[in-house]
Amino acid sequence: MENLDAKTKNILKQLQNNFKLETKPFKRIANEVGCTEEEVIETIDNCCNNGIIKRIGAAVKPQNAGYSANALTAWKVPPEKIHEVGTELAEIKEVSHCYDRECPKGWDYNLFVMIHGRSKEELEEIIKNISERFDLKEYKVFNTVRELKKTSMKYF
């Protein structure tokens, strides 16, 4: 964050708070910041390339895109296998989040994977396939019961 110059910060702030569905969304940001539209697009492009912006796009509600059965799953994966398993799981369409996490004492399930199915049966099938494909026998399934909060972090 400290590496960002004031103009970049300003542009990112406007992008976060003032991105509108209109014909020229970057022009609005340029007007707010007081620079050119080209500068806005270039700055955003740079931030996409250096990874500060992961992407510009849409966040979908899986349950409304036809995915009614959702679960957080946690898998016990040996450290030497975690890269292979994580990378391959990331390719699965029904997997939205896949994280290797530090675990507290007494908890051995280090790979956290969010999985979405169009039905409970489909969800269970995906979990079973993962278990067999990577020979992972120890895992936990936490089915989503209710969304209590979902927002985006305001960084700027």
């Binding site: 990112l12 209109e22 510009i56 966040a59 979908v60 509600k61 895109a65 985006s152 960084y155």
Partner: peptide, 28 residues
């Protein structure tokens, strides 16, 4: 395109359109 996206938001298919930041790269 815009009116279709607006409708998808109203129907609850899309929650948000905009940037996704990498929290770690921003020091979070």
């Amino acid at each position: 395109v815009i009116s279709r996206i607006v409708r998808l938001i109203q129907n609850g298919v899309i929650r948000y359109v905009g940037p996704f930041f990498d929290s770690r790269k921003l020091g979070y």
